[in-house]
Simulated scan of single mutants.
Amino acid sequence: MKKLTRALALCVVLALGACALTGCAPSPGSSGGASAGGASSDASAPSGPISVYAREDGSGTRGAFIELFGIEQKDASGQKVDLTIPSAAITNSTAVMMTSVASDPNAIGYLSLGSLDDTVRALSIDGAEPTAANVKSGVYQIARPFNIVMTEDASPAARDLAAFIMSAEGQAIVEENGYVSVAEGDSYVPSGMEGKVVVAGSSSVTPVMEKLAEAYRAANPGMTVEVQQSDSTTGVNMALEGTCDIGMASRDLKDEEKGAGAQATVIAQDGIAVIVSQESSIDDLSTEQVMEIYTGAITNWDDLI
């Protein structure tokens, strides 16, 4: 029995020695908690050239982004000029932007806060976290309006859909989908209309518009609502041309669009999130740093870390 006891003790000693040699630490792939800034424990600091991603010309998100971050500046003649670095990779929709940034550890991009998912990480700007609550309170100031655009010749059906969007039910859908409501409307009374409304434009507004259209159709079974995704400028132009009933724009109207007869109604407020891949340990940038990245004054992550 004594021999057996001594043998067991020897096994324990040998096991403890092996543990000491290997460190008994979690493997690199094991769970070790999150870092203070919200990045996962396996996130690493990006290094090398910054991969800059931008939206296409005509995008309301791009228009608002360059204005809010000072990337759009006046030239010597007083004309506004977009100074986005020419080497920026152009993405033509919110979905493409998200996929592109998610797959590039050195990437930076931007998109509608309401469209954000867990494939990418949104950065705090000037210490303010990008949330709907912070947009509503004004703490997070990188925000813009979502507009629907019609003309004075808009059909009764288009105006009824607009009334639903601004109703208590419509604005509740806005809030439920991560945006900031802008009205405390009355309860919507179904109109019983029959027909079709075509809504076209901004890819940022499209997700919440599809939810609004679905609820409107449920209230009015005789109505069809077709939502066509493109960009804000296309949506405004289609509304002016009469090729859609309602345009969607994720920016304010330009003076020339108003002069042509476009009439905008703000249906929601939305933040613009500056995003990086989940692999990046970057948590916060200043407004000035974002501007310098997008104008080419800063081109390497090592200059920020």
Rank of each mutant, 00 (worst) to 15 (best):
Y53G: 02
S155I: 10
G63Y: 01
S100N: 13
G60L: 06
L161D: 09
G114H: 06
T119V: 11
G70V: 02
A45H: 04
A76V: 11
I90N: 00
T94K: 04
P105L: 03
R144N: 06
L113H: 10
R121P: 00
F146T: 05
A102C: 09
V81N: 01
R144I: 02
P86L: 00
N134D: 10
R55Y: 13
V52L: 01
F65T: 12
Y110G: 06
L116A: 12
A163K: 14
D118R: 14
I108D: 05
Q141G: 14
I165Q: 00
M98E: 12
E129S: 15
I125V: 15
L116E: 09
P130D: 10
S103N: 15
V52Q: 02
A102H: 08
I71S: 05
Y53P: 01
N106S: 10
T61R: 04
G138W: 05
S124D: 13
D118K: 14
I50V: 04
D104E: 15
F69I: 09
D153A: 14
A88P: 02
S51F: 09
L83F: 02
D117P: 08
A64Y: 02
S100H: 10
A89G: 02
S112Q: 12
P105H: 13
A54E: 02
A163C: 11
L111V: 12
G138T: 08
V52C: 01
F65M: 14
F69W: 06
A128D: 01
F65I: 08
S59C: 14
S112M: 07
I66M: 07
N134H: 13
R144C: 08
T61E: 11
G138R: 07
D160Q: 05
Q79F: 05
I108Q: 10
S103A: 15
S51Y: 08
A157D: 07
A45K: 07
K80V: 06
V149D: 08
A132M: 11
A163D: 13
K74C: 05
P86R: 00
P49D: 14
D153R: 12
P130R: 09
V149Y: 03
N134M: 08
V52E: 00
S103P: 03
S51L: 03
A102I: 03
K74L: 10
G58D: 05
V120S: 09
G70K: 04
V96D: 12
E72H: 03
R144F: 11
G70C: 04
P156H: 06
P145H: 09
S87F: 01
A143W: 04
M97P: 07
S44K: 15
L83I: 00
A45V: 11
A162E: 11
V149A: 08
I108F: 10
L68Q: 11
S103K: 15
A64C: 04
L116W: 13
R121E: 04
